[in-house]
Design a protein around this nucleic acid. Sequence first.
DNA 1: GGGAGCATGTAACGGGTTACATGATTGG
DNA 2: CCAATCATGTAACCCGTTACATGCTCCC
Lengths: 213, 213
Amino acid sequence: MANEDPTDLPSLRPTSWATLGLLSFGEELSGYDLKKWADWSLRFFYWAPSYSQIYSELRKLEEIGYASSRVVNKDDVRGKRLYRITPEGEAAMTRWANEAPVEPAVLKHGVMLRMWLGHAGDPEHLREVLLAHREQSEKMRIRAVADREGAAKEPGWAFPEMVLNWSVKYYEDERDRADAMLADLDKFARKQKRSRRTPAAKRTSDELRSHSV
Amino acid sequence: MANEDPTDLPSLRPTSWATLGLLSFGEELSGYDLKKWADWSLRFFYWAPSYSQIYSELRKLEEIGYASSRVVNKDDVRGKRLYRITPEGEAAMTRWANEAPVEPAVLKHGVMLRMWLGHAGDPEHLREVLLAHREQSEKMRIRAVADREGAAKEPGWAFPEMVLNWSVKYYEDERDRADAMLADLDKFARKQKRSRRTPAAKRTSDELRSHSV
DNA sequence: GGGAGCATGTAACGGGTTACATGATTGG
DNA sequence: CCAATCATGTAACCCGTTACATGCTCCC
């Protein structure tokens, strides 16, 4: 979609855009501030990068002219570097938000991976894993609800508020899917128990061994 | 063998366990096979690693004794290396599935990032982005439904089937959240238009607050 | 005034991707 | 029979994390 003319965007990764995006609200911020704000605001839908990556992103953004920085010396000894978005940075952000191709979200769901490999574990333990995941999801949902209240009070935060609204649903859905899966797992465990009592069990485990694809 | 204490698992990343997990179904597979199968089976809930990473994971797994390999030479010139899980690998898998701490899923949702930065874009383009995301989600849902049918026919695939069931819901939920957000976005756009026509409208911030849940 | 934690980073390393290489197979 | 694609990897590079360093502030 966006790779022909020389006015073209440097192809940054979403994480770079996220960093620039944090600056795009207009404040002048240090790497430390950025990290804190990222943890607070992006965590619901975008894995927050570590300090060191934020620092290197900032250096990169400055190098390509999307951010500028200055050092403020508080009581001489140690300086801290504050970054600010440049007009070129704002223009690039806009183009990215409007024109970048729509990529699928990156998901690495460790809990589902373990469920997928359920044949290697035992149902009792898996049940606990799922329950813990359910509780984590519910906690995230509650935090998203609280943040949404906060965002609603701020003028000009309509988009963050929309995304928080999405996030509340996301963790609600995650919680509900965990519940549904717990039900599936229980059903499976009951079936296993029944078939262990009956001779049919032998056949099942033989087939498990032979893994025909 | 890298570890003396048998109660102490080498702390592998989930991606390594995913690779080992693909082997844990019992077949002897090449790196190429692994990648193909990963793309087919894990993609719904776990970002599939690239070829080269799979190859290096396999070398690592062999080094720590969780997998073994042999080279088959077909017509001499080029060999291919087939990997198989070892008993130690199976034991480690089981311990991981049962005992590893429950980590939150890694999510990097580029589309939500762009919505969050909506102030930098324009609502018309954002609407298209959301619509494209909605369609992608629906496509994934349909694929998951098809795969679930397939898994249901295989004996011993109860866990993959459960996870596919979860995946169908996941993409269904993703699609529905996109629809809900499209509605939010339209409401916001209408409000913007109104307040541009009547700049005196101080009511804007009140309306922002009354945004539906 | 001594430790706990805050604020500000850098260095070293491993995770992971993209680009490249190369022979085999297959379809037109 | 030639091009495309499959199958099998390696090399180089960047993304991202973990561990470390260092002074400041607070509070007990």
